[in-house]
Design a protein around this nucleic acid. Structure first.
Lengths: 333, 333
DNA sequence: TACACAGACTAGAGCGCGCTAGTAGAGCGC
DNA sequence: GCGCTCTACTAGCGCGCTCTAGTCTGTGTA
């Protein structure tokens, strides 16, 4: 920067002003400085910039690798952050890299705010994060914590899905849940409520699962094993999310079970692949772009006003009927 | 930091020493300082740290959202970077965020080295990046540029796949390529060579495609449309990568074409999902973990010795035969 | 006793910027 | 000529840390 200033015959301060795009420099000087900078190959160093102004204007996003829906969210976060003048840094949680590690990395790189995509860490830790930085959780409610929350109305989504299945004549509807994954508890609850509402308490069955393909496959195998022992297959399965639904679909198809003739399958997310499946996945759409925009806005607003109470954005999900749900087979149960 | 020092009754310098884990502080003081820091909630600020020591010890990784194989690579990058004492920052290219933007973000955050996963930007720009920072390209060769290169031997992989198909009796083997995507050119070349070697020049057919599910679906539709006009389906398809193979699979299955009875499909990558497909995708495995480790090591070695010539690591891929490839149908062509 | 030496610790410069408080000079009205 | 305002620009402190070059003590050695 000093070099640029020297070569352009101005002070460092003016170079700074120009690179920040602030008023206070003549158009002529501006052009000259920019040209010189380009020649020298000068790029402002954001570590120093960061240090100098108190603020980093950087949002940290924690996501989980392989979660398709997170990819959808990330695509939505960038443009909104840019619109509001913020930088974005990503940090991934993986099989052997904990969410805490991912979050700490972001924090130590001076992210002012954290956007956590489907965090599964314990509530206490998330609350701690909320105190250390403006924090937004997408998909996971963190009760009584200083953390904003963006999600879709899981209950409504499940409600729509269940109405759809019941209307198609299904009664033996099983739910594969998402374990401790964000949103799972609420989906589970809504499933139970719907079953009860339709007088199907006796049929309620929740299979412990996860939001992964593997989990769907495992559940599929379980159903098939049961069938081989004379038990009837469920006529419909409400999966914890799209990935799980996909795994289930794979397992069933592979075993010659026809979806939706024999079994209907409904997912959750409408992640970017679900319309690509063999017959198009019936699923509950969460609008990733909208959720991302809300998350970014929450983070920024909280930065501008740290006193804000923890807020919540609930977006309405929408059932998307595609090919994996159909009329219930003649039931013998 | 000053607070911690004051409260613990030592100098800032000593606190620094302790937080860097350097020798030069008694065990007793060390414990005391760490305890005080914990009470105050002090975390070292890496922007300042970064600025102070010339080096950031941070690797920047650029990837493309939704590329499953990139997720596999990222999972492998973290542990290796940590082992070598480096931090990792991610930046994603998306539909409307260019690779250049993603890379600049990393650079301006002081990443010392860039690891580009499957970059598609023009060679000139990559070369420029190579001059600005230690740069490693994974999957894409950048001739005559100051960029290290990690990839698998595309030729060998395709070779194996083609031998496999030919042995199964296939002759009408079509290749959906990956356009400008990394590795595509080489795969395309190897496909042509293999066809020629087996006297199948006349059957050579390369369909312009991309490394996306959509591309596979499109190609599938094309084949089906041709069939409806009386043309024969290919008996085998070598897709550009797994995602493309998957899309193709979906399109064919949806139309009632039986894989592998009617058409065999072979992918490329062995990305984390390919064994989960309905019948398990026959594909060419690239070892993501190994590739990631090489990439990190290249980056670090180049940082330690900037004079190093651009290097290349070629890993041997391996055909993984699963369920999507089978004997060629009785040919009428 | 004198001296070297290692271990524990500190003072203070400086990393590359942003920002506040300023100056210099031009233009204007009286 | 004066004071005023406005634009274009600058001096220099400080952000939170690292690192070099020390100081000071206590211990071993000639």
């Amino acid at each position: 920067m000093a070099d640029v200033a020297a070569k352009a015959g101005v002070s460092r301060a003016l170079v700074s002003i120009i690179f920040r795009g602030q008023p206070g420099a003549s158009e002529e000087t501006r052009q000259r400085v920019l040209r010189v900078a380009d020649e020298i190959g000068y790029h402002p160093d954001s570590a120093a910039r960061l240090l100098a102004r108190g603020r980093s204007r950087t949002l940290g996003v924690m996501f989980t690798v392989h979660q398709t829906f997170h990819a959808d969210l990330i695509s939505g976060i960038y443009p909104e952050a840019e619109r509001l003048g913020y930088d974005v840094l990503l940090s991934a949680a993986t099989y052997d890299r904990s969410e805490a590690k991912a979050a700490e990395a972001l924090l130590s790189h001076r992210c002012e705010a954290l956007i956590l995509l489907g965090p599964e860490a314990e509530a206490g830790y998330l609350d701690e994060l909320g105190r250390r930085a403006a924090t937004v959780s997408v998909g996971r409610r963190v009760p009584r914590a200083r953390v904003d929350f963006v999600h879709s109305a899981e209950g409504k989504g499940v409600h729509q899905a269940m109405e759809h299945l019941v209307e198609l004549g299904h009664r033996r509807i099983v739910h594969i849940d998402g374990g401790r994954s964000p949103g799972s508890a609420e989906r589970r609850r809504a499933y139970r409520a719907a079953m009860r509402r339709h007088g199907l308490e006796a049929e309620v069955r929740v299979i412990p699962g996860q939001h992964t393909e593997e989990s769907g496959i495992e559940s599929g195998r379980l159903f098939l094993a049961e069938r081989d022992q004379g038990q009837a297959l469920p006529t419909a399965v409400l999966a914890g999310n799209d990935r799980c639904a996909w795994g289930l679909l794979m397992a069933l198809t592979r075993a010659g079970v026809d979806v939706p003739r024999d079994v209907s399958v409904v997912g959750y997310d409408d992640s970017h692949l679900s319309h690509l499946m063999p017959i198009g996945l019936t699923t509950v759409r969460q609008d990733a772009t909208l959720m991302a925009e809300h998350a970014v806005r929450f983070a920024v607003e909280r930065l501008e006003n740290p006193e804000l109470e923890a807020r919540e954005a609930v977006l309405d999900p929408k059932l998307v009927v595609r090919g994996t749900s159909g009329k219930a087979p003649e039931t013998t149960a």
